[in-house]
């Protein structure tokens, strides 16, 4: 069941319900006019894919609400996570490893 799931029509990101390979074209399901989208990065299962180009500083919208902002220009079909977006509240979250989620700002000797 490879597809990109859009929760709210206002969203500019969708959720990959299974891992999507780089270059793969997958159907878009849920509340979106978009029929399909090509992943220009690998999108891990449960992670977000950009449904359109998102300018640096612009809102990232999921569930119809702002869940943070872009910290870099994001191209349509990109993986959207800690490397290119950040919370509007929590200054620490961008210091986590985007693959493992482990903190990179705590020193282990």
């Amino acid at each position: 069941m490879k597809n990109a799931y859009v929760i709210n029509s206002k969203d500019n990101v969708a959720v990959a319900l299974e891992t999507i390979e780089k270059g793969e074209l997958v159907p878009v399901i849920g509340e979106s006019a978009l029929k399909e989208i090509e992943a220009i990065d690998a999108i891990p299962k449960g992670h977000k894919i950009a449904l359109c180009g998102i300018a640096k500083g612009a809102d990232i919208v999921k569930y119809g609400i702002v869940i943070g902002h872009a910290t870099a220009q994001i191209q349509k079909g990109s993986w959207v996570h800690l490397h290119n977006m950040a919370s509007n509240y929590d200054e620490r979250s961008s210091a986590m490893d985007e693959h493992t989620g482990a903190p990179k700002d705590t020193v282990y000797e």
């Binding site: 299962k45 943070g68 929590d90 620490r92 903190p103």
Partner: peptide
């Protein structure tokens, strides 16, 4: 904030999400 490494690895990027 109440968001942890496991949450990030699971695809959540921010506390708002």
């Amino acid at each position: 904030y109440s968001v942890s490494p496991g949450n990030f690895a699971g695809g959540l990027s921010t506390i708002e999400e």
